[in-house]
Simulated scan of single mutants.
Amino acid sequence: MKFKDYYETLGVKRDATQDEIKNAYRKLARKFHPDVSKEADAEARFKEMGEAYKVLKDPEKRASYDQLGANWQNGQDFQPPPNGDAGFEFRGRGDHPGFGEGSDFGDYFEQMFGHQSGWGHSRGRAMHAQGEDHHAKVQIDLEDAYNGAERSISLRMPVVDENGHVITRDRTLSVTIPKGIRAGQTLRLAGQGGPGIGEGKAGDLYLEITFRPHPRYRVDGRDVYLDLPLAPWEAALGANVTVPTPAGSVELTIPANSSSGRKLRLKGKGIPGKEAGDLYVVLNIALPPATSEEAKAAYRTLQQAFDFNPRAAL
């Protein structure tokens, strides 16, 4: 997928006000509408403008687009990063199924944020109304899910300032991370959403949990995976090794004649819960480098000692 510069499409500057974006779109729409335009590429241009306006007219989508597209040039290959909306706080939205092949950049934002209730839209004309619910995606450490934690979380909320520019305002919340929480689960913070109207109660803030990428572990639901390097002799002869887990180190027996890719299961050592997950240790045989004459001689001895062809099955 190619990155599209929506500001260039509408012919406006990146610091354009919301009114300037609206006026630019209306002017171009009149010029390139397929029913009236004589331009050969009118239909394609009209579609491109509609896609750009769909994102830039919405302050929330525009703020995230500005963040995601900050380091991209028009026409470059673009892959939306995972958790691209992490740390942003938005008004009520539906489920976002994720980015899939065949979608354009505008579709990606529709999927990320769902169907918005509309910027500044109230829940009716009553004098008293409950505030809108807000949603945000936040990242925590895997260890927080094992132990529980108290964390300060910073969120950015896009707003339109008095001059019509989209800006982000930061807010910091103290959040209790319960032990055993999984990626995809949601924490509800009562009264932390949009303010109510009149005597209406404030809305709630829903925090969707994701895990920060870990240098050591991979997570699948409640199960956790660890790649464990082994020396060839440990794999061949068997060994007792110390294995790190997010809950502390454990001793693991490596069976003799183990091969790379073999999985050893540590039952109940995954993310805690009523039904705790498991931790899978994936064996990975690491070869010592042959950087000295002694090391090379040792490998030649192995070569002579074994009648072994690793490609015999090919």
Rank of each mutant, 00 (worst) to 15 (best):
Lys179Gly: 03
Ala313Trp: 12
Val55Leu: 00
Ser154Asn: 08
Asn240Leu: 14
Leu155Lys: 05
Phe306Gly: 02
Gly221Glu: 03
Trp72Met: 14
Val12Met: 14
Asp161Leu: 07
Gln67Asn: 05
Gly84Gln: 04
Lys274Leu: 11
Phe99Pro: 03
Arg182Tyr: 01
Ser103Thr: 10
Gly203Gln: 07
Pro229Phe: 03
Leu314Asn: 14
Ala63His: 01
Gly106Asp: 12
Lys31Phe: 05
Asn23Trp: 09
Tyr280Gln: 04
Arg300Val: 02
Ile167Val: 15
Val243Thr: 10
Gln192Phe: 13
Pro232Ile: 07
Lys61Cys: 05
Gly184His: 04
Trp72Val: 06
Met112Lys: 11
Thr9Asn: 07
Ala145Ile: 01
Arg222Pro: 07
Gly87Tyr: 01
His165Ile: 12
Gly106Thr: 09
Glu20Phe: 11
Gly102Arg: 04
Met112Asn: 08
Ile167Gln: 12
Arg218Ala: 15
Pro80Ile: 08
His214Gly: 05
Val55Tyr: 00
Asp104Gln: 06
Ser260Arg: 06
Glu294Ala: 14
Met49Leu: 11
Gly164Thr: 04
Thr245Pro: 07
Arg125Asn: 14
Asp227His: 10
Thr172Ala: 07
Ser292Cys: 02
Tyr25Gly: 07
Ala256Asp: 09
Pro213Cys: 05
Arg311Phe: 15
Pro97Leu: 11
Gly75Lys: 02
Ala298Met: 08
Phe113His: 06
Leu237Lys: 14
Arg45Ala: 09
Ala297Phe: 06
Leu28Val: 04
Ala305Leu: 13
Ala313Pro: 01
Gly131Lys: 03
Gly118Asn: 07
Asn83Gln: 05
Lys31Asp: 11
Tyr65Arg: 01
Gly11Lys: 10
Met112Leu: 14
Gly11Pro: 09
Gly273Asp: 04
Gly180Ala: 01
Gly193Asp: 09
Gly120Lys: 04
Ala52Phe: 01
Met157Leu: 13
Thr242Met: 14
His134Ala: 12
Lys269Gly: 02
Ala297Cys: 10
Glu60Met: 02
Tyr146Asp: 07
Gly94Gln: 04
Phe3Gly: 02
Leu283Thr: 02
Ile140Tyr: 03
Tyr6Phe: 15
Glu162Met: 08
Tyr299Pro: 00
Arg222Ala: 14
Pro80Ala: 10
Ala312Met: 10
Glu60Cys: 00
Ala44Asn: 10
Pro288Arg: 12
Gly191Ala: 09
Tyr299Cys: 03
Lys31Ile: 12
Arg262Pro: 00
Gly118Phe: 03
Val219Ile: 14
Ala231Ser: 13
Glu293Phe: 12
Leu302Pro: 00
Lys2Gln: 15
Gly268Leu: 06
Ala52Thr: 00
Phe99Lys: 11
Asp95Thr: 12
Gly120Glu: 09
Asn240Asp: 15
Arg62Lys: 08
Gln76Val: 01
Glu208His: 10
Lys2Cys: 08
Asp278Pro: 05
